[in-house]
Design a protein around this nucleic acid. Structure first.
Lengths: 193, 193
DNA sequence: AGTATAATATACTGAACGGTATAAAATGAT
DNA sequence: ATCATTTTATACCGTTCAGTATATTATACT
């Protein structure tokens, strides 16, 4: 080893993640990437491979962060109902305060790439399955503690919450009236009896 | 008027719709379009304007077809519960038999373009609102006939069903285990009491 | 039949794309 | 201090992109 890399790989990957997250795969050019990452083209290729490999690394990083973020949010609350309520309400609040957020990188990828590339089909599917497991565990906790009715089917309910989360996230991209989203959240949460 | 157009505009627009629906805006090139539509580039420009105008026309056509298709499916049934059940189950069945379908053109556009172009934000939002109205009318019918409990909030429920429809459509792009989707559908339908 | 008009087909434009060859700059090991 | 090695920076590659200029073909009207 002779000359050391001048840029922070993790920092550069984070910049790439933000860009792909915001604009998607096709709409993000290599010039966009090198500008945002602050590195030259050959440095990008030597460090991350081609555009698709960089995208995959960025998505994997997002999925890790997203998973632990959701886990934290759901566990940061004594009440399970309250945890889900603040989780969904914060999701909505984040989207409606000021300028729109970028939505979910994984969901964007499900739409843009999953149908045409098995690698991304699997990656995004496994993330959704993982989220449903986190949800399920949280629901089971609520049942065990007596907060939720023992008649609830934790797995089915968790899967339904994942579907609802996806639906809300995508719907909000069209910026519907807030009441549309609020009503849906309220009704979805009513499933947690 | 002197020389008449050699191609069927409506047919050509339908071809463009299929292509944009399948591949999205950016991933569909003008060469893809002229090949599929069977016309030359200048014919396309003179008949439909530029790529974005053609895309908008294609999306508007899809939205019209989709609206009336859903209206038909929901009204083709004596029981409201049964109508929604077959609607959602057919949606899933269509996706899982053989090769995957193209999903929903409007949802794809919500993800790819709505956040960056107000024209498509409005267009897609209004379609989702329209769908929720169709759903709401159907639910009200069920309440009036006594099939559904009068305590149901038709509007909230309809909006929730739209969110669920979006979530299911997007989730299926990652081709999850069928039970994941079936469970969600069953739980969503349980809201129709 | 001749002419005006509009729709074709061909070929081209400049720009942007993803990716890379080449060479200069920098550093650890000897 | 020199050398081997790897990262930089610049400039370039062929390809594809959306869009158009040009010229040919076909039709309706006179």
């Amino acid at each position: 080893m002779v000359r050391q890399r001048e840029f922070d790989e993790e920092r550069a990957l984070d910049d790439a993640m933000q860009l792909f997250w915001e604009k998607g795969y096709k709409a993000t050019s290599l010039s966009d990437l090198t500008n945002k990452m602050g590195i030259q083209r050959p440095s990008l290729y030597s460090a991350f491979g081609d555009k698709e490999e960089l995208f995959e690394a960025a998505l994997r990083k997002y999925i890790k962060l997203h998973s632990s973020d959701i886990r934290t949010k759901l566990q940061n609350n004594l009440s399970v109902k309250e945890a889900f309520r603040t989780f969904f309400e914060d999701l909505v609040e984040e989207e409606y305060k000021g300028s729109p957020s970028k939505g979910c990188f994984c969901i964007n990828t499900m739409v843009e790439l999953a149908p045409y590339d098995e690698k991304f089909e699997i990656l995004t599917r496994e993330h959704q399955m993982y989220l449903s497991v986190i949800f399920q565990e949280t629901i089971v906790t609520g049942i065990s503690s007596g907060e939720l009715e023992s008649s609830l089917n934790a797995k089915m309910l968790a899967q339904t919450l994942v579907v609802s989360l996806i639906g809300l996230t995508v719907l909000m991209k069209s910026r519907p009236e807030r009441s549309f989203v609020d009503n849906s959240v309220a009704m979805i949460l009513s499933l947690l009896k």
